[in-house]
Amino acid sequence: MTGLLPDEADVDFADAGATLAALAPRIAQGEIVPYLGPGALGADAPVPASPEALAEFLGAKVALPARARGNVWAAAQFIESRRHRNTVTALMDEAFAPPVVPGPLHAALARMGAPMIVSTWYDAAMRRALAEAGADFGEVQGITRAAIGETEWYRFYDAAGDEVAAPAAWRTVLYTPHGGTRPAHNYLISDADYVETLTEIDIQTPIPDIVAERRAGRSFLFLGCRFHDQLLRTYARQIAKRSSGPHVAVFDPGTALTRNERRFLAAEGIVPVAAPLLTLASALLQPA
């Protein structure tokens, strides 16, 4: 419980040292699916590293009504309704234009050959790390259905960034359910983007078959994630659906979890651990 705030006393945090030491071999053996949130980028990232930071970026570019300030999904929806979808895409491209150098955590995960890695933010750090490691990987990326005539929920891209018709026998599948700046500037970001997805996701229609296959029998490791927003909780729940717990979530020491976050962790069988992500990266980089 060291470093945790008093209002988190009712959360049963696991021992960080023992838990982190046990994770590396399980990831290497393909038993765990790493699930990265924006916090995996670190505080010095050159791009917005939280929904709140991205909302602030959009608010600095377009005057937003009070109801949309601080809420990235509502902010993007307002911009889309007033200035067209192309403006939203252009602003997202601008926000995530600076190249993100993969950190030690990305590098460590890229070298471990996990069957699947989920990255839920719009940066391309995990893709770049896999490419730099020479990994055998491909990407399944969520796409908006806002385009006229669009009927698909996702697209497939190979390691070079070229779109392919179907996934190959990649050793590692990188799943980016909210889209990403690379390789094709696909973004799920506005309220409208999520209307159909959230309607269908409970019956798993937007979840690619290859993701459903590779989560089966595996547990999830949530890194740099927060669950204070209902949309974030819904996606985490549905992506991890029909996998095998218990799951683990690593939070920076001192993180003040909300009541909804604590309830979510308990309901989904997610064991919280308080430890810096760099500590986890060090544990993963240790020779077997």
Rank of each mutant, 00 (worst) to 15 (best):
Q29E: 14
R182K: 07
D7S: 13
E56D: 13
L174F: 08
E139T: 13
L109C: 13
P65V: 07
A236R: 04
E56V: 11
M126P: 00
S244I: 03
N86H: 15
A192N: 14
I201Q: 04
R226V: 03
G142F: 10
K241N: 11
I239F: 04
S219A: 15
Q286T: 08
G180S: 09
G245N: 12
Y157S: 01
A125R: 01
S119F: 03
L278E: 14
G30N: 11
L58A: 06
A159R: 14
P65C: 07
R226D: 05
S244G: 00
D158Q: 05
L109I: 08
G113Q: 15
I207V: 15
T87L: 11
V47I: 10
N186G: 02
A68P: 05
F222Y: 15
T197F: 03
R83Q: 14
F251H: 04
R155Q: 15
A135T: 13
E8Q: 15
A28G: 08
E261W: 04
F57W: 07
R171F: 00
F137N: 00
E152K: 10
P167L: 09
A108T: 00
L105C: 00
Y175P: 02
A283K: 09
L280W: 03
L285P: 00
A60M: 11
I117H: 02
P65M: 10
S219N: 11
F251K: 01
A275S: 15
T2L: 06
K241V: 05
S282K: 09
R237Q: 10
E132P: 00
A166R: 15
V211Y: 10
N260H: 09
V72D: 09
A281K: 08
E196G: 12
M92P: 00
Y187T: 06
A283N: 04
Y187R: 02
F264Q: 12
L231I: 14
L20G: 00
S119R: 11
E132F: 00
W153K: 05
A192E: 12
V271P: 01
R82P: 01
M92Q: 05
L36T: 09
L20K: 02
H84T: 15
D202F: 07
A43W: 03
Y187A: 02
E150F: 06
V101L: 10
P276D: 08
A97D: 14
L23H: 14
I239A: 09
M1W: 10
F13P: 04
A55L: 08
H106M: 11
R259M: 07
N86L: 08
N260M: 11
A68I: 04
A236C: 13
L174P: 04
E56I: 13
L58D: 03
Q230M: 08
E80D: 14
I270G: 03
D229Q: 11
R145Y: 01
T172D: 03
G39H: 04
G179C: 06
E8M: 15
G39T: 09
I32Y: 01
H106C: 01
E31I: 01
G149H: 12
P65T: 03
A216W: 13
E31H: 04
E261M: 02
A281I: 05
V101S: 14
K241W: 12
W170F: 08
